[in-house]
Write a protein that binds this DNA or RNA. Structure first.
Length: 282
RNA sequence: GCGUCGGUGGCGGAGUGGUCAAUCGCAAUUGACUGUAAAUCAAUCGCCCUUCGGGCUACGUAGGUUCGAAUCCUACCCGACGCA
């Protein structure tokens, strides 16, 4: 049996992924699944560059606004929801189009990463957060030598999660690549540095003009704490246009570092007109 | 005009005679990535030589003292402040 096709549109921020996705969806009868770690939250619209109803042009979009920003989302949840969304779309005879810039989320789905189900342990985390990376590393060695071998010994965030998992399961399970039930076609969009800068500047200016600060106020009023806002990204914590521009550009570079490893991606310069051959998605 | 303080690498800012190409932060570059991922973390970061290592040019400018200066002295230029 032939595996159903899924088109993945990924790449740097501000390259026009959403528009391209809508265009392709219209052509081939697709539905879009967002792959953005922040657009899953309700109320983060302007700051995350979320697509508007109008821009959707009637194409169904999934995985947008699925959770309150007061709660935390995770890759695992993303993976679960996306898998069922893909199945549902295919069952309706449509083609899923995954579109977004969060590389980790995309890999979780397109490479079938299997995550052990261990919930966050707030008490443990609070305790571990006070220790130094060196100490955490020593703790991990005791719990799970194998994981300790590969982990970055200075990265506290990872060390804490590894310890959390090891405590719950006895050890950190190996990363397993699941069997994929879809054929993923990956299309990458990037911009040359000067063009990227231009695009980002324009986009950020528009963000402020269309009410980013009001959006933040609204979030605060609805009970989102300052701390949480900081976690939600640089657009949401005392943003200034200059800061948002430089941070966005840095982020776009980090995105490329991630995506570069994936040799299956077909890359396109987003500043040029992109013509897709039918063979690309059929 | 006099006085005081200051001029350091892309920026901020340490260093006040040797171990200084110069702590550190930011930016930049490269990269990592097993559950907050717009997060978190690492390496590199004057120039040249192939790495160990070596060579060269550098701490406002020009001189000087010294075996040795970013560090001390003199003059000049620039900036901030104070007094005129």
């Amino acid at each position: 049996m032939k595996k159903p096709k899924v088109i993945v549109i990924l790449g740097q921020t501000a390259t026009g992924k959403s528009d391209l996705a809508v265009k392709i969806a219209g052509k081939i009868g697709g539905e879009i699944i967002s792959a953005d770690s922040r657009q899953v939250y309700k109320g983060l619209d302007i700051g995350t560059g979320k697509i508007t109803k109008k821009q959707m042009m009637g194409t169904p979009h999934h995985l947008l606004n699925v959770i309150s920003p007061k709660n935390k989302f995770s890759v695992e949840k993303y993976q679960k929801l996306t898998i069922s969304a893909m199945a549902e779309i295919v069952s309706r005879g449509k083609i899923p189009i995954i579109c977004g810039g969060t590389g980790f989320y995309i890999d979780a789905v397109t490479k079938g990463l299997k995550f052990p189900s261990v919930p966050l342990d707030k008490k443990l985390r609070r305790k571990l957060a006070q220790k130094s990376a060196t100490v955490l590393f020593r703790i991990l060695i005791k719990l799970d030598k194998n994981r300790a071998k590969n982990i970055d010994p200075k990265n506290k965030v990872r060390l804490i999660r590894a310890i959390e998992i090891a405590k719950a399961l006895g050890k950190v399970p190996h990363l397993v690549l699941g069997v994929l039930s879809y054929k993923f076609i990956k299309i990458g969009l990037y911009l040359p540095p000067e063009k990227l800068k231009e695009k980002v500047e324009k986009r950020v200016k528009k963000m402020f003009k269309t009410g980013l600060l009001k959006e933040i106020e609204k979030l605060k009023k609805s009970g989102v704490s300052e701390n949480r806002l900081r976690e939600l990204g640089f657009e949401y914590f005392h943003p200034t246009p200059e800061k948002v521009i430089t941070e966005t550009i840095k982020y776009a570079k980090r995105q490329m570092t991630w995506f570069k490893r994936d040799k299956d991606i077909k890359w396109f310069d987003a500043s040029k007109k992109i013509y897709f051959k039918k063979t690309l998605y059929y």
